[in-house]
Simulated scan of single mutants.
Amino acid sequence: MTTHPAHPTARSIRTTPEGLLWEPSERWVRGRKGDVTVVDSRHPVLVWEPRLPVPQYAFPREDVRTDLLRPAKSPPAGSHTGSRTFYDLDADGEVRANAAWTFPADDLAGHIAFEWFLRTDTGLDHWYEEDEEIFIHPRDPHKRVDALASSRHVRVEIEGRLVADSHAPVLLFETGLPTRYYLPREDVRLDLFDATDHHTGCPYKGTAAYWSWGGGGDVPPNILWSYPEPLPAVKAVRGRVAFFNEVVDITLDGERLERPDTPFSRMLRVGSRS
């Protein structure tokens, strides 16, 4: 049996001197720009950079349409860990600057990484793992997302005002984040909130719609959200609503929970000043 040099049979996470973590993946991954397939790989590598909480793919050079890549005219400084070379992508009648790059690590020599499509129009338009389209960023094989129905008692207050009271939550446990409490709409005072045009995407859950608090006070916007059409793995949260624990007061089974400090905390603080 022939083993691909970047795809050993014993799977494990490796560390490079530059601080990168990487692991070979067994998924068939493709990336398209318009109608052009730019990447088609059965030997991708997942790479974690120290400053990024999510992984990204790097691909053997032979699995990439390198004829569509040009040395970047204006390579960014310090945007990726020790990145060695940046490329502009010229495909489907459009040039996208700094769409791809190489890492300096010897372990990843001969591999090319790509920006993902939601990063300021720099990446490809569509990505697929096997025959399923994936969004936002690659899914982390070391992360779990579980949505479990519960009968725990959840109360939510904002500025001292009770806005939700439920004995029928769905608890969503996601590695590295606080538990989120998805509540039936009839248990939430939605009349106190205003729907916004804000939307976010998650590769584990789908696309979320948001509401902002309408009761005044020092409350950031878009603190309440729902997944109207969640991905199958978390279908139990469909149509339910959840609050950012970081900025509301949640009482669980009579115990007031501390507000967690998460990567969303700064974003919410900045949003409150905008």
Rank of each mutant, 00 (worst) to 15 (best):
P260R: 12
F264E: 13
W127S: 01
V247G: 02
K205V: 00
V156G: 14
E258T: 08
L118Q: 14
S74T: 10
E246C: 01
P60M: 13
L69V: 01
Y128Q: 10
L252G: 02
E115H: 07
E129S: 12
E23L: 04
A77V: 15
T9F: 15
G217D: 05
T66Q: 03
S25A: 08
G271W: 01
W213F: 00
S79K: 11
D197A: 10
G110C: 01
A113H: 04
D40Q: 10
C202G: 09
A149S: 11
D35R: 13
A147N: 06
A99I: 04
V170D: 12
P5Q: 05
D88V: 05
T37P: 10
F117A: 15
V38C: 13
P5S: 12
L192P: 06
R61C: 15
Q56V: 12
T85I: 11
A208N: 00
T179I: 15
E186F: 08
A195L: 01
R139H: 03
P75S: 02
F264S: 07
V54F: 14
A242E: 06
F193H: 12
A6P: 06
L171Y: 05
E133K: 04
T85N: 11
N222K: 07
F173T: 13
Y227A: 00
A147H: 04
L172W: 02
T196F: 04
L192R: 03
